[in-house]
Amino acid sequence: MTVRHHLDKNTLMRFASGDLDDAFSVVVASHLAMCEECRNELRMAEDIGGSLIESEEPAELAPGALERIMSSIDVAEAPLQRRESLARDVFADVPLPLRRYVGNRLDEIAWKTAAPGVKRKRIEVDGSSSLYLLHIGPNKVVPEHGHGGAEMTLILSGSYQDALGRFQPGDIADLDEHIEHQPRVEPDAPCICLVATETQTRFKGFFSRLLQPLVGI
């Protein structure tokens, strides 16, 4: 998989320091699962945390802390042996961090029609941001929209084009609130993407306003 559109570096740092909410963490983790390049960058960002923990001035532990942990590990089992990885389903095309929400296969997702040519699967997560999958038909144009807040779109299948280029599986559009875009799905296949939005997306224009309550994003 050749990924061309990656995470914004600020997003990567926020993920490394644990600052993203659940919806955005799932999208970022799903991109990372598909993108070795960003996984390497994440390690570097996490090394920052490692170096800071090393340079911390040690705090005094509560009395008996050492005895407490030593008796906990006595009760616990010996360190687990290498557990079997969840990543063993060879037919799975859903990225691992998303599987606990929607299962392993894209063709087994229970879609709901949201608008002509647009199907949706809402994913329940804690927090104020929303997370959903979209299935958009070939040639379909998503109305031009700015964002009330940050928005991230990860392509899982198919492709679309907009002013920022062509987005294929693994590519992520990690957009700031001020960017407007108008994706057009390519003719050969529908596009399935995972989307997190910070607040209500504000569609512009007549069709858009028509579509918005239906898409419900």
């Binding site: 320091s17 963490s25 970022v28 799903s30 990372l32 945390g49 990543a87 691992l96 599987r99 927090g127």
Partner: peptide, 28 residues
């Protein structure tokens, strides 16, 4: 640090560190 960060997410931020664990599984 990553274990401490995940514990902090679960306990102090009361969110889920599950995406991080799943990502570890990818590496595994």
């Amino acid at each position: 640090y990553t274990i401490a960060r995940n514990a902090r997410i679960d306990r102090l931020r009361r969110r889920s560190s599950q995406p991080y664990d799943d990502l570890d599984d990818v590496e595994l």
